[in-house]
Design a protein around this nucleic acid. Structure first.
Length: 382
RNA sequence: GCUGGGAUAGCGAAGUGGUCAAACGCAUCAGACUGUAAAUCUGCCGGCUUCGGCCUUCGUAGGUUCGACUCCUACUCCCAGCA
């Protein structure tokens, strides 16, 4: 079983430490999205420097290339990437949503490779086998992600996820025994709760998941706290799943607010592509809100994006220089901006952790929200 | 000086009698971006606007025509070749 120590808890919210074979993760923590075994535009050394505690890669993408066998041969994801720290893999379940031609059946899914059109078959067993070879510390059960307000569709995806869970667990346990025999490091499995934005479905899913012999939980198919039901769904889910296991809020974090709400209702780790993707596209986070570095007003701002920020970008470069790099499409600009955004969200989680320990979470959150979402009403912020 | 080609919005470039404020690309200006098919996508892009339209444009000045970016004349400038 994955070791998870809760250091301090208040209601659902807590701070703790997840002990993985490749190191500890102090929670709450933002895990960098490294879909193809790379946090886009950022080196792993830079990730360490900005304070990241873990990265999350995607099984589907790594099956396509370079293939799980190769990563296994390299010694696993942490070794292969020279990240050396804690790692997660997503099961490939999200690609059922993002790849429009995914054909889903009772056993699994057939994807058409977005690279060369090859048919790629995935199911719980295939995903588990691939994840064990890729060798991240924490695996996600193969589930069906869905983004729909059609309750029947959401229910079907949930039932499918439930049906697949025992297969995920059985295969995971079989592979764990095999690994133990071969002296390979331990790897752990999170079950993924589904049920969309429907409270009754979420309860049903969480109750079923709570009974399972898994190491932790992913909360899937939630996307943004802009949708008012989201916060409550996180809350009721975490009220049901076991308190003593870590919880990962899958893919949610396109708004800093998502992290506060997730942490407030008991999520321990987060991942999202938004900080790096938005950075590449010129949207940078600052304490007073998101900015677009391409905007003409930054042409002559000879001070950092955020002078209170202690990331490598803000310590060394001006907004005017970044603006220029974006205007001429120099890749360094994307790197600097990605470092800044990734640092921003990693830092929020660090501050949340400290504020839980100091009993100042509410103040920190209120202060952050006021500054970041200044133009919005209090209701919008929560 | 002669001959030929050309001059269209910030730039490049379509359009060769009406459906043209004018395709398309770039640039500009702004917006969006979920477990990443995303260094991507969208909008704007002559002026004004109560967003329905109104007004002024296609080197300059005239002309033909119901009607001209499109045809004719002159002029200005650019390019190529020949003197």
């Amino acid at each position: 079983m994955l070791k998870f120590n809760i250091v301090k808890q208040k209601g659902l919210m807590r701070t703790g430490v997840i002990h993985t074979p490749h190191g500890d993760i102090k929670t709450p923590a933002f895990i960098g999205a490294a879909t193809r075994a790379s946090v886009k535009a950022i080196t792993h050394a830079q990730m360490r420097e900005l304070g990241s505690q873990g990265i999350l890669a995607n099984t589907y993408h790594l099956i396509l290339t370079p293939g799980p066998d190769l990563i296994e041969k390299a010694g696993g994801l942490a070794e292969f990437t020279s990240w050396h720290g804690p790692t997660f893999t997503d099961s490939g379940g999200f690609q059922m949503l993002s790849l429009t031609d995914a054909k889903i059946d009772h056993d699994g899914v057939t994807f058409k490779s977005h690279i060369n059109g090859d048919k790629i078959r995935m199911n719980p067993e295939i995903s588990m086998q691939a994840q064990w070879k890729i060798g991240a510390d924490i695996h996600m059960a193969f589930d069906q992600a869905i983004d729909s307000t059609d309750k029947e569709l959401v229910r079907k995806a949930m039932i499918r996820t439930h049906n697949w869970l025992p297969r995920n667990i059985a295969e995971h346990q079989r592979l764990a025994k095999e690994a133990e025999k071969n002296g390979k490091y331990e790897q752990y499995l999170y079950a993924v709760v589904q049920g969309g934005l429907f409270e009754d479905l979420r309860r049903e899913s969480a109750e079923l998941m709570a009974q399972q012999p898994v190491d932790g939980y992913g909360i899937g198919s939630l996307y943004t706290t802009k949708t008012p039901e989201t916060a409550n769904i996180i809350k009721i889910t975490n009220e049901i799943i076991p308190n003593d296991k870590p919880r990962h809020l899958l893919g949610m974090g396109s708004e800093p607010r998502d992290l506060f709400i997730g942490a407030m209702y008991g999520c321990d780790t987060f991942d999202c592509v938004a900080p790096t993707r938005q950075a590449r596209n010129g949207a940078l986070y600052t304490p007073s809100g998101r900015i677009n570095i391409r905007n003409a007003k930054y042409r002559e701002q000879f001070s950092p994006i955020d002078s209170s920020c202690d990331c490598y970008c803000c310590k060394n470069y001006t907004a005017a220089y970044l603006h220029h790099l974006y205007k001429v499409d120099e890749i360094t600009g994307k790197t600097l901006a990605s470092i800044h955004n990734e640092h921003f969200v990693v830092n929020i989680c660090n501050n949340i952790r400290k504020s839980i320990l100091n009993d100042t979470f509410e103040d920190y959150m209120a202060d952050f929200m006021n500054k970041y979402y200044q133009a919005q009403t209090l209701k919008d912020r929560c």
